[in-house]
Amino acid sequence: MSGPLVVHTMMLAGILFAFGLIGFLARRNVLFMLMSVEVMLNAAGLGFIAAGARWGQADGQIMFMFILTLAAAEVPVALALVLQVHRRIRTLDADAVTLMAG
């Protein structure tokens, strides 16, 4: 019973990560890109939990909680940046943010 389900969970995590990556690369809306990052982080956590469940250890869930903490710390800062960008140049297009003229 322990074999295929873990493998399929890993495949599911890979599929979700690929969707997140596609969304991150294809979209130019900053909010969409942030949500795609969330999808990718979540897929990584799912992989950790599948590996932890395979061996009956709690370490996978610990790693999931650390990923959760990372997401919870990253999202407010990124959303504050989005608010600042929208306040200054009135758009959410990631390609329009060229104030540094790099």
Partner: peptide, 30 residues
């Protein structure tokens, strides 16, 4: 899926923090 994998605490955290807190932040910004 996490619940079915035998990780009930992680499932609760996924609902509370991901689907609850983080997504609500996105809703606020929108």
């Amino acid at each position: 899926i996490l619940l079915l994998l035998g990780a009930p605490f992680a499932a609760a955290l996924e609902i509370i923090i991901y689907a609850g807190a983080i997504m609500v932040l996105f809703v606020f910004v929108i």
